[in-house]
């Protein structure tokens, strides 16, 4: 599938403070096709999350100045009013957060949270939505029996919370999924499981996905395209294999070098961050 879901041109994001303006993103260009995954990688402060927020139309217009073009299918998100943004949130753009437990309401059963998200986007009765929620949770790896014993988020493991969060994010059958460090709080096994689940969903639903991460291994294991950022600027962008094989920028080269050292123990030391 090569239908472009999202096209971003010359995206700039600047945070306006009382006496200064901090430019977090300085001209980024990329696109995301249906059924593909774009991984945005870079160190802390590279501007990755600012790009994610801009794509989801989540910047507070009083505090951030966003310019450029963020075209979701045919609509420019930057030009949308708050009401128009409300219409696309969840329905056309889904989002997954790093702290999935924190992103789930502690006083509401998780199945009800999924059902509520389904009802928001589909005309279903309460009971139908609940049945659909259980079905979706089951297919995401959350068993019905488990929810009977542990119905609230604080009773579930981080991995299960992330599976619930994915079910909520996909409840409106969006065309674009933005995952901001979705496995940051998980161990390696669960990271792999969640990544596999996300990859399956992308393939099955034909949605485009943006994965924000600082984990190069994770990014290369799932992404079709790679965007490398540093200090708010785009330093490399292209198909994942090409970027790995022949990095065109000093920083990317350095990043891959450090990653190889960490993974395979080559060189003088480890680069734990």
């Amino acid at each position: 599938m090569n239908d472009t879901v999202l096209r971003v041109n010359d995206l700039h994001v600047a945070y306006v403070k009382e006496d200064s303006v901090v430019e977090a993103v300085k001209g980024v260009d990329f696109s995301v096709s249906a059924g593909s995954v774009l991984a945005i990688i870079g160190g802390s402060g590279a501007g990755k999350s600012s790009v994610a927020l801009a794509v989801a139309g989540l910047h507070d217009q009083r505090k951030a100045r966003v310019t450029g073009k963020v075209i979701l299918e045919h609509d420019d998100i930057i030009q949308m009013s708050e009401d128009q943004l409300d219409d696309i949130r969840g329905a056309r753009v889904g989002m997954i957060f790093q702290d999935s437990r924190g992103a789930l309401d502690p006083t509401m059963k998780v199945v009800n949270q999924v059902a509520e998200a389904i009802r928001r986007h589909h005309h279903l009765s309460r009971e139908e939505a609940r049945t659909e929620a259980l079905k979706r949770l089951h297919s995401a790896g959350v068993a019905k029996d488990l929810l009977r014993h542990a119905p609230y988020a604080h009773q579930l493991s981080s991995g299960l919370c992330q599976r619930v969060m994915i079910s909520i994010a996909l409840a409106g059958d969006p065309i674009l999924l933005v995952a901001d460090e979705p496995t940051g709080s998980l161990d390696l096994t669960r990271q792999a499981q969640i990544m596999r689940l996300l990859r399956e969903r992308v393939a099955a639903s034909g949605l485009g996905m943006i994965l924000i991460t600082h984990d190069l291994g994770l990014a290369t294991s799932i992404a079709d395209d790679l965007l490398v950022m540093r200090g708010g600027s785009q330093v490399e962008y292209g198909p994942c294999e090409e970027v790995i094989k022949s990095p065109g920028h000093e920083y990317t080269n350095e990043l891959f070098g450090l990653w190889r050292q960490t993974c395979f123990g080559k060189g003088k030391g480890h680069a734990h961050t």
């Binding site: 989801a56 989540l58 409300d86 949130r89 969840g90 329905a91 889904g94 989002m95 957060f97 702290d99 924190g102 992103a103 789930l104 309401d105 502690p106 006083t107 509401m108 509520e116 998200a117 928001r120 986007h121 969060m165 909520i168 994010a169 409840a171 409106g172």
Partner: peptide, 26 residues
Amino acid sequence: EMDYVKAARVLGASGTTVFIRHILPN
């Protein structure tokens, strides 16, 4: 300011729904 309130908003819940379903009970 809790993440679940922001998450509900980000995933399409209206301001009123977020207040009644998530902010009020908590």
